[in-house]
Amino acid sequence: MTARKAIFITGGASGIGRAIGELFAERGWFVGLADIDTATLAQTRSVLPDGSVSTHGLDVRDRASWDDALADFTNASGGRLDVMANNAGVPLGGALEDNSVAEIERCLDVNLKGAIFGAQAALPFLRASAPCSCLLNTASAAGIYGTSGASVYSATKFGVRALTESLDGEWAEFGIKVRSLMPAFIDTPLLAHAPNQRSNEAIRDRVRAAGLEITPVTEVAKAAWDAVHGERLHTLVGATARRLAFGARWMPGRLRREAAKSARAMGN
């Protein structure tokens, strides 16, 4: 094995995944970027230092494709996988009655099933590089307290949180860390999307109308670095995430009332 550490990141073409890849590459790691969007993936690769990155087309919903992608990555990395970053995800908002069956299934499959498949596929490689290897899951502030107008998305992120907590115990004997990031609204291309097929309003506009902050993506990348190298199980990113965590623990009744108000403000 090469002494150079290696990280594999899903959803690596843009947004949080790209920012994590850039930071880890700057700090001397070999970076594998995986995404279903191979055109944007190629653009991202072009801005990273030569010899520091490999790219892999991957649909995280396809379990067999995980094995192929990780085999290709470890061949490029000299046999190492120190951090598996389960970051791929898709948004889904709006009232539950407005979400189509196809949208619901896609959100569940990418956000939750994809993370489970990624953890399962990465385990042999993480065991080989343990101790100090890490599974890093991108959860969300929506996994702290259920978000009004985003019930399916929240359900997937609660699932990612549960996966993190379950595997933290299950993999302790192997010396593998399991961590999650819980960001709120992050300045990524996903905010330009509509919350669902029945809406033509960008998520960014709804966030601003509700008076919520949008956190720079570089803060998530720094949080990822700290999570991999620290002892905190869940890392909160952004003021909204911190407020939700505080409210869920100390003021649950008030948080319920604010959730209802937020639903009305977001137009759900």
Rank of each mutant, 00 (worst) to 15 (best):
G94S: 11
G89M: 14
N86I: 14
L70E: 07
G93W: 02
V90D: 11
A102Q: 14
R80S: 10
R80I: 11
D98F: 01
L96M: 09
G89T: 14
D72A: 15
L70K: 08
V83C: 09
M84W: 07
G94V: 02
E97R: 09
L70I: 01
A88C: 15
A95E: 07
T74R: 14
P91N: 11
A69H: 06
N86Q: 09
G89F: 14
R80K: 12
S100W: 01
E103D: 10
P91G: 08
E97L: 12
N99F: 00
G89I: 12
A85K: 10
L70H: 07
R80N: 13
E103A: 07
N99P: 03
G93H: 01
T74A: 05
S100E: 01
G78S: 13
T74Y: 01
G78N: 12
F73P: 11
E97S: 09
G79V: 14
V83P: 06
A102D: 11
L70T: 00
E97Y: 03
E103N: 11
N87P: 13
F73M: 03
D98S: 08
A88K: 15
G89N: 12
V83M: 07
G89C: 13
G89Y: 13
A95I: 03
N87C: 15
S77I: 02
A69C: 01
V83Q: 05
D68G: 00
A69G: 02
F73V: 06
D68K: 14
N86Y: 10
R80M: 08
S77V: 04
N87M: 11
L96Q: 05
A102Y: 01
D82W: 10
A95Y: 01
S100V: 01
G78M: 12
N99H: 00
L92V: 07
E103G: 11
L81E: 02
N99R: 04
G93C: 08
G94C: 02
R80A: 14
A88F: 14
V90S: 13
I104Y: 06
L96G: 05
F73L: 04
G93M: 09
A76L: 06
G79I: 12
G93Y: 01
N75S: 15
P91R: 09
P91Y: 14
L81P: 05
S100G: 08
S77G: 12
A88R: 14
D82T: 13
L70G: 01
N75I: 07
F73N: 05
V101Q: 04
E97W: 09
N75T: 11
V83H: 08
S77A: 15
L92M: 08
A71N: 02
V90N: 13
D98P: 00
D82E: 10
A102S: 12
V101G: 03
A102V: 08
I104N: 00
M84L: 15
L92S: 11
V83E: 08
G93I: 03
N87Q: 13
G78R: 12
A85W: 04
G78K: 03
D82A: 11
L81N: 03
S100F: 06
F73A: 01
M84Y: 12
V90A: 15
N86E: 13
P91E: 09
A88Y: 14
S100N: 00
L70P: 01
I104H: 04
G93E: 00
A71P: 05
D68L: 11
A102K: 06
L81I: 06
